[in-house]
Design a protein around this nucleic acid. Structure first.
Length: 789
DNA sequence: CTCAAGAGCCTTTTT
DNA sequence: GGCTCTTGAG
């Protein structure tokens, strides 16, 4: 039997399982996608299940696409009938067919977080709430959590009891729901919730889908929230041939990789699966096919500190592999610089190519320094996440035109473009139109169409009129046969002068925007060409609304990837840099301060995810200080570093001495050069700092040699490379500072000032200077290069 | 109505 | 440090 070939006994058991609920606890790198795809193939070929009856759910389009591809190759014919897609796309597909039953039109718009914020801003203004006390984000996140837990505005209000703030939230929630409905729009959470509502209120529709999806498979089950669980359990209620009810539900997940609590993910969905479905089979996949033994040992050592988890231990038949590298740098610039150097060096030695590397960090804000240093080294890279292509201003503007054409009730989109590009329609006019719309219970665009009847806008009337006729002409043209979406988009750009105005700006910024717009045009063209059904404006907008940045990462391009740990889930790389390993960064300050002790456990799971991305080499790093929110911050190494057994780690970088001085009470003791050579017996001696740690020195090393291989990963510390020798602490010891509190000093950039404070931070001074002109600055003595006057 | 400068907030993570 | 929103002058 070909389908079972190459599977281990546990995997085979999972693939062969037929009816009834199945929980597969799949550790990182244990081949879960393989099990899912082979299981689908087995269902079809061995159990004669109609492909049409299979639904596979994932969280990202990328995961769905990969599964689709693999299923297609094993299943071959009729694979297209299998429904493989994300939760959100699945729901949109269902809603596009049936949403009229809920009082929406099929052309509904999907609001992203920017739209949600714009809408909430309007609402807070309308309810005349103090914007200092009630923040859009806070209100929206309360609403989102409520929706994830399937709590309606009415239930929310009841629960608020006498809590004043909660009652206000409840009012916002209710108004928000009303406005979404009036705008014929759904937010991300609604896609799931409205589908549930549809099923619960329409038994015929539900039973259609129950019959259709006789076998349901869910990937990354640990990330499902309460609503998603409800959705799945509603559908997975299939009447068997003998009339008995079956739950043909196969979920795959790893509780140790549950990292989306902030998005409502309920880890107890996976922890309690067996009590929800007492008849469930449970299979554990613990053999890892991805990482070396050392990497796995580190991962296990960290994750075992969590109390809320199912006991399991990953193992592998792979060799021990390299030690895990750990370096404490002076600051984030040194960290990024050394990593960039190291990558350049490994690649130029032909040991790996750019695409083998990933730089991971906790927050998107950390990416900038890496970007800077990679550019310096001419290393091709791509930052994943940060700003999604479709969130860029110029793209959202043009999409707002398209959305206005598709769904005129979408007030947020109409308001976005009514004065973009500038048409001389100001805030006062917009407010008047809004009021008119309220009074006459019509949409903003509806009011706009009646502009002649609105009081007090005489001066802008002509402008409003031409805006309306512009939109109407777009609509008319689109209705014409032979006229396609590309024509429409080009016409919008032409008629509004959007690109022309950008060209007149003649700035670098504008140039980038024009490039993005060209990219958008090609995305429209690609959609029209690849679309499986008849391409429509609604179809395009839907596709665009549901893509994540990670979905657009192409495997073929040879570039270094930079991304958050969250984005990295599900990916693997030969070389992984886990950066910013500092208490306060990772685990985040918020999680450390959280009343709920489980908050740090979630961070630890995130750390586990990061570690298990690495196939061959894993490097951990932190910085003693870094800039955050405009000021310098000092952090001790992450508590997760403490949790890693020392014998697995190879301490790198010349900061050993400084680190020791700086954190004498830390549990983690920095290795000295002797213990480095002792613990790294599997490798050649690497204690000769001055030669082997210098990336330029490595260029002369024999290609593929163990030394170049293992040491070049860390380019070490700039003081050494620059030839200062081993006495690192000398270069910034107190002896070089000839000023003290009260002295007048001068700085290259900030000019003259007076020293107001000096703190010994272990090997260096943190100096606070009051510069003339009322600027106070904290800086490190070793970098500030202050001159005594 | 538009533009420029200043204030304030932010940074935990995203479909 | 940077982005967005507010404020005030033209």
């Amino acid at each position: 039997m070909q389908i079972l070939e190459g599977l281990n006994p546990e995997q085979e058991k999972a693939v062969k399982h037929f009816k009834g609920p199945l929980l597969i606890l799949a550790g990182a790198g244990s081949g879960k996608t393989r099990v899912l795809t082979h299981r689908i193939a087995y269902l079809i070929q061995e159990y004669r299940v109609n492909p049409w009856n299979i639904l596979a759910l994932t969280f990202t389009n990328k995961a769905a696409g990969e599964m689709r591809e693999r299923v297609d190759t094993i299943v071959g014919e009729h694979a297209g009938d299998i429904w493989v897609s994300t939760f959100h796309s699945t729901c949109v597909r269902i809603l596009r067919r049936h949403i009229e039953a809920l009082g929406y039109e099929r052309s509904f718009t999907i609001y992203d977080s920017d739209d949600q914020r714009a809408l909430m801003r309007d609402i807070l203004k309308y309810l005349q709430l103090d914007p200092k006390k009630y923040k859009e984000r806070a209100v929206l996140s309360a609403i989102s959590s409520a929706k994830d837990e399937l709590i309606s505005p009415e239930q929310f209000e009841m629960r608020a009891q006498e809590d004043y703030a909660k009652k206000i939230y409840a009012r916002c929630y209710r108004e928000y729901e009303k406005r979404l409905h009036d705008s014929n729009a759904l937010d991300f959470d609604d896609l799931i919730c409205k589908t549930i509502q549809l099923f619960e209120e329409n038994e015929d529709i539900l039973s259609y889908y129950q019959n259709r999806f006789r076998f349901i498979l869910v990937d990354e089950y640990q990330d499902t929230n309460t609503a998603q669980f409800r959705l799945i359990s509603l559908m997975a209620n299939t009447a068997d041939d003998d009339g008995s009810i079956l739950h043909n539900l196969c979920v795959v997940g790893d509780d140790d990789q549950s990292i989306y609590k902030f998005r409502g993910a309920n880890i107890y969905n996976i922890l309690n699966f067996e009590s929800q479905y007492p008849e469930a089979n449970v299979i554990k996949l613990e053999e890892n096919y991805r990482s070396t033994q050392n990497i796995l040992e580190v991962a296990n050592a960290v994750i075992k500190n969590n109390s809320v988890r199912k006991e399991k231990a990953l193992w592998t038949e792979k060799p021990k592999g390299d030690a895990i590298y750990y370096t404490q740098y002076l600051n984030e610039y040194e960290e990024a610089g050394c990593i960039a150097d190291a990558i350049a060096s490994v690649v130029s030695n032909g040991l790996a190519s750019y695409k083998d590397f990933a730089i991971l960090y906790r927050t998107n804000a950390q990416s900038r320094v890496f970007e800077e240093k990679l550019i310096l080294q001419n290393i091709p890279y791509r930052i994943v996440g940060a700003i999604n292509f479709y969130q860029r201003r110029e793209i959202k503007d043009l999409l707002a035109y398209l959305r206005t054409i598709e769904n005129g009730l979408d007030d947020i989109s109409v308001k976005r473009i009514i004065n973009v590009p500038k048409r001389g329609i100001g805030l006062t006019t917009i407010d008047r139109i809004t009021n008119y719309a309220m009074e006459h219970e019509t949409s903003f665009y509806g009011a706009l169409q009646n502009y002649e009847y609105i009081d007090g806008i005489s001066r802008s009337a002509a402008k409003l009129g031409s805006f309306v006729s512009l939109i109407e002409s777009f609509k008319r043209h689109l209705a014409a046969p032979e006229y396609n979406l590309e024509d429409l988009l080009r016409e919008i750009i032409e008629e509004t002068g959007y690109v022309r105005l950008l060209k007149e700006e003649d700035s670098e910024d504008a140039e980038g925007r024009i490039e993005n717009i060209e990219e958008l045009i090609s995305k429209v063209v690609a959609y029209e060409e690849n679309c499986e059904e008849e391409p429509t404006l609604g179809g395009f907008l839907e596709e665009v609304a549901l893509v994540a940045d990670i979905d657009n990462v192409e495997e073929s391009s040879d570039i270094v990837l930079l991304m958050t740990l969250h984005s990295a889930k599900g990916l693997e790389f030969p070389y992984v840099y886990l950066t910013g390993m500092e208490d306060g960064i990772f685990p985040s300050y918020a999680s450390i301060m959280d009343d709920d002790a489980e908050a740090v456990e979630e961070e630890r799971r995130l750390c586990y995810v990061g570690i298990t991305r690495a196939m061959q080499k894993l490097s951990l790093s932190c910085a003693r200080c870094r800039f955050r929110n405009g000021e310098q911050q000092f952090n001790r190494p992450s508590r997760f570093i403490d949790e890693i057994p020392r014998y697995l780690m190879k301490q790198c970088g010349g900061m050993a001495q400084a680190a020791k001085n700086s954190f004498p009470s830390d549990k983690f003791t920095v290795l000295d050069s002797n213990s480095v050579s002792r613990t790294s017996s599997t490798k050649q001696n690497t204690t000769n700092y001055s030669s082997s740690w210098n990336p330029t020195a490595n260029k002369g090393a024999k290609k593929g040699g163990a030394m170049a291989d293992s040491t070049s990963l860390f380019a070490g510390n700039p003081y050494i490379s620059k030839g200062f020798g081993k006495n690192t602490s000398q270069t910034k010891s107190s002896s070089t500072v000839d000023y003290t509190v009260g002295d007048r000093v001068s700085h290259v950039r900030f000019g003259n000032g007076t020293v107001t404070e000096m703190k010994d931070t272990g090997g260096d001074y943190q100096v606070t200077v009051a510069f003339d002109g009322d600027i106070n600055r904290k800086m490190m003595a070793s970098f500030a290069k202050l001159k005594k006057l």
